[in-house]
Design a protein around this nucleic acid. Structure first.
Length: 591
RNA sequence: GGUCCCGUAGUUCAAUGGAUAGAACGAAAGUUUCCUAAACUUUAGAUACAAGUUCGAUUCUUGUCGGGACUACCA
C-alpha cells in the first residue's frame, strides 16, 4: 500500500478511536507538505470540521498527538492554520529502500484481466507524417506501454485510411504530372514522393478554381467543377467499381507510401499488433445501418438517405447512408468498431484522435449505443489537442507543416553537435555514436511532445529548436547516465547495510518520490496521461542531481552510508529508465 | 447562429477546491584540484476582467473581453 493510502487509513482509525466516528477514506485529504513547513504529508482538516464539530486546529492537534503516541510511522507533527503536517519516520523509507532496491518490478502491477485496444497513428496514405501526427503516435505508444505495465492486456492497432477521394487526388496528380516517375527515380522516400503529388493536386485545383471564378462562376460552383476535381471523383468511382487499372495504380502508390511509413515507424521505435485497412472495412457499416433501420433506430428520408436523430441527446440529425446507398465516413467507422470488437472482444477500445473530432466520436458512440452493439460502451476517445505553429494550425493542404522525418533528422543533428562539443564519448564506435544520436534526438522530441497534458493544445515554434537542457528528455537521460557511471565504478558486491544510518533531508526527499512511483504509473494509466510520468521523472532527476552535488557516494563517510547511497542509485536508475521506457524513450548508459 | 474547449511570469508548460501559484527557456549573478558542469545555486518576473458560491477559488457558477475547434450526402 502506498504511504498516502496508509496515512489515510491510520487517520481514519485514529478518528474512530478518538471521536467514535466512522469516516470514509475519500473524505480524508492528504497533500504533500509544502517545502517551507516541517513535515512530509499534510492532513487538511477543514472538511472534517462539519463531521466532528470541532475547530480545525483542535482536530489537527488531537490527531497529531494521537498518531505520534500510537504509531511509530510518525515521528513528529506540527499544526499550522488548520493543517496537520506529519513527519514520516526515516525508518519507513529506509525499509522501503532495503526491500525494493533490487526490485525490477517496482511500478509494475499484476494483470487485471482487462483487455484494451488502442488505435493510434491511423494515417492517410496520401502524404507523409508531420509533427502533429507525431503527438498522436507517441501518445498512443506511451499510453499502451503505461497501461500494459499497469496490468492491462493491450492490442496496439493502426487503421490505415487507404481509400477515398484524398487518395484519388494524389493519384490523378501523378497520372497528369509524373510521366510515370517512381520514388526511386526521384530519389525520394515513397510517402514524401506521393505527398508531393497531393500538393501538386491542390496547386492545380486552386489554379483552376481561380480561372473559373474569373470566367464568372461562383466560388462554390468553381470548386465543384474544377476539371481536376472531376477527374479525381471519376477515379474514385472507378476504384469503387473495381476498375483494374485504377486499382493497380492505387496499390502501387499505397505501397510507396507504406514503405515510407514503415521506415519512419521503425526509426521511431513504434510498433503495432494489428493493422486495419479502410479499403477492407468501408463497406461493413452498411449492413449494420440497414439492420438498425429495420429495428426502428434510424429513419429514412424521401430520397432514400438514412439518418439518425440525436436531438434528444442535444445533437443534430446525422446522415449514415447516402440516398444512392453509398457509405459516408461514419458508416465506415461503425463497421470498423464492430469488426474490432468481433476480433478481440476487448473491454475498452481507445481511439487516439485529435480533439477536432470530438463531435464525430460522440456521435459514433451514441449511434452504436442506440444500435445496442456490444462494442458501444467500451469506446473511449482519447482526445488530444492540436499542435500549433506560431502561424496557426498545421495544414498539409496548405503546406504549413513541419515534416516528421525532417524533424527527426534535425534532432539527431543537434544531438550530434552537442555530443561532439562536450566530448564525453570518445570511447564510442561509429555505430554506437549513431545509436546515441538517435536515442538523444528522439528522446528530446518524444519528451517534448509527451510532457504536456494530452488534452491541451500545444505550441511548437520551429524557429526555436527543441532544447536539451532543463525540462527535457536529454536532461532525464543525462541523469540516468550519471547514475550508471557511479554504479559502474562501485567495487562492492554486497549492498546489505549493517547498521541503520542517518539519512539527510535530500536523501529522504528522493525516497519520498521513489515511494510514489507505483502510484504515479497507476494514475497515468487510469487517466491515459503520459505527462504525469514525464513530470514525475523530471522531479526525481532534479532531486537526484541536487543530491549529488553535496553527497559523495563512492567516498562516503562510512561504508554503510555508501551502501545506502548505492541502493538509492540503483532504485533511481530503475525508475528513471522505466519511466523513459514508458514514454518510448531509450536510456543510454553513457552520453 | 448553435455546441464545445482554452486565456497563468517575456516565452513554453505545472498546480485531486487548500497554506506565501511551481518549473524550464530567456535575462542577471555565481559554482569545477572531488563519482559526467547536457549539472548545481541565487535574483527579478504571472492567475485576461467583473461579480457569485465557499472557512478557503488558478480550479466551481454567471457575465464581459480575447483566441480556437466543431456544426459537409469530405475523410
Amino acid at each position: 500500500m502506498s504511504i498516502i493510502a496508509t496515512i489515510k487509513d491510520k487517520i481514519a482509525n485514529a478518528i474512530d478511536n478518538l471521536y467514535q466516528q466512522k469516516i470514509a477514506i475519500h473524505e480524508i485529504q492528504i497533500n504533500e507538505t509544502k517545502q517551507e513547513f516541517n513535515g512530509d504529508y499534510t492532513l487538511v482538516t477543514f472538511p472534517l470540521t462539519k463531521i466532528l464539530r470541532k475547530k480545525p486546529d483542535e482536530i489537527a492537534s488531537e490527531l497529531g498527538a494521537y498518531l505520534i503516541k500510537n504509531d511509530s510511522l510518525f515521528v513528529a507533527y506540527e499544526v499550522i492554520k488548520g493543517f496537520l503536517n506529519v513527519t514520516i519516520s526515516p525508518n519507513y523509507y529506509f525499509d522501503f529502500l532495503k526491500n525494493n532496491y533490487l526490485n525490477q518490478n517496482l511500478g509494475f502491477a499484476a494483470p487485471n484481466q482487462k483487455k484494451v485496444m488502442i488505435e493510434y497513428s491511423s494515417p492517410n496514405t496520401n502524404k507523409p507524417l508531420h509533427f502533429g501526427h507525431l503527438r498522436n503516435i507517441f501518445l498512443g505508444h506511451s499510453v499502451a506501454a503505461i497501461m500494459k505495465q499497469a496490468g492491462y492486456e493491450i492490442i496496439k492497432a493502426n487503421l490505415i485510411n487507404d481509400r477515398g477521394i484524398h487518395i484519388c487526388k494524389s493519384m490523378i496528380a501523378w497520372q497528369l504530372f509524373a510521366n510515370g516517375e517512381t520514388p526511386k527515380e526521384a530519389n525520394m522516400k515513397g510517402d514524401h514522393f506521393v505527398g508531393r503529388y497531393y500538393v501538386m493536386y491542390n496547386d492545380e485545383f486552386k489554379k483552376q478554381v481561380k480561372q473559373l471564378i474569373e470566367e464568372g462562376r461562383s466560388e462554390e460552383d468553381a470548386a465543384k467543377n474544377a476539371p481536376i476535381f472531376i477527374q479525381a471523383q471519376q477515379l474514385l468511382r472507378q476504384w469503387e467499381a473495381g476498375d483494374q487499372e485504377t486499382i493497380l495504380l492505387w496499390k502501387r502508390m499505397n505501397e510507396w507510401v507504406y514503405e515510407g511509413f514503415y521506415a519512419t515507424y521503425e526509426k521511431m521505435g513504434i510498433t503495432f499488433d494489428k493493422f486495419y485497412y479502410e479499403s477492407n472495412t468501408y463497406l461493413l457499416g452498411r449492413d449494420f445501418v440497414m439492420k438498425a433501420l429495420a429495428n426502428g433506430v434510424l429513419f429514412e428520408k424521401e430520397d432514400k438517405s438514412i439518418w439518425i436523430d440525436l436531438q434528444d441527446e442535444g445533437l443534430d440529425q446525422k446522415l449514415l447512408l447516402r440516398g444512392d446507398g453509398t457509405s459516408v465516413y461514419i458508416t465506415q467507422d461503425i463497421g470498423t468498431a464492430v469488426l474490432k470488437y468481433n476480433d478481440y472482444k476487448m473491454d475498452t477500445s481507445v481511439y487516439v484522435i485529435g480533439d477536432e473530432q470530438n463531435y464525430h466520436m460522440q456521435v459514433l458512440k451514441l449511434i452504436l449505443q442506440k444500435m445496442k452493439e456490444p462494442c458501444a460502451d467500451g469506446i473511449y476517445h482519447l482526445s488530444y489537442g492540436m499542435v500549433e505553429l506560431p502561424s496557426g494550425r498545421m495544414k498539409s493542404r496548405e503546406g504549413t507543416v513541419v515534416d516528421a522525418d525532417d524533424m527527426i533528422d534535425e534532432m539527431k543533428a543537434i544531438a550530434q553537435k552537442n555530443t561532439e562539443e562536450l566530448g564525453k564519448v570518445q570511447n564510442f564506435s561509429e555505430p554506437q555514436l549513431a545509436e546515441l544520436y538517435t536515442q538523444l534526438g528522439l528522446g528530446a522530441l518524444k519528451f517534448y511532445l509527451l510532457r504536456v497534458d494530452p488534452k491541451k493544445k500545444m505550441m511548437f515554434n520551429p524557429q526555436e529548436s527543441i532544447d536539451f537542457h532543463g525540462f527535457t528528455g536529454p536532461f532525464i537521460q543525462y541523469g540516468h547516465t550519471r547514475i550508471c557511471s557511479i554504479l559502474k565504478k562501485a567495487t562492492i558486491q554486497n549492498f546489505e547495510i549493517n547498521q541503520a544510518i542517518e539519512m539527510s533531508l535530500a536523501e529522504k526527499n528522493i525516497l519520498k518520490l521513489v515511494e510514489q512511483y507505483p502510484t504515479v504509473v497507476e494514475q497515468a494509466a487510469t487517466e491515459m496521461n503520459p505527462s504525469l510520468i514525464g513530470n514525475y521523472v523530471y522531479q526525481l532527476v532534479k532531486q537526484f542531481n541536487s543530491f549529488l552535488v553535496d553527497h559523495s557516494i563512492l567516498k562516503a563517510e562510512q561504508e554503510d552510508i555508501m551502501k545506502f547511497r548505492l541502493q538509492l542509485c540503483m532504485i533511481c536508475k530503475h525508475i528513471i529508465s522505466n519511466s523513459l521506457f514508458l514514454l518510448g524513450i531509450d536510456a543510454p548508459e553513457q552520453m
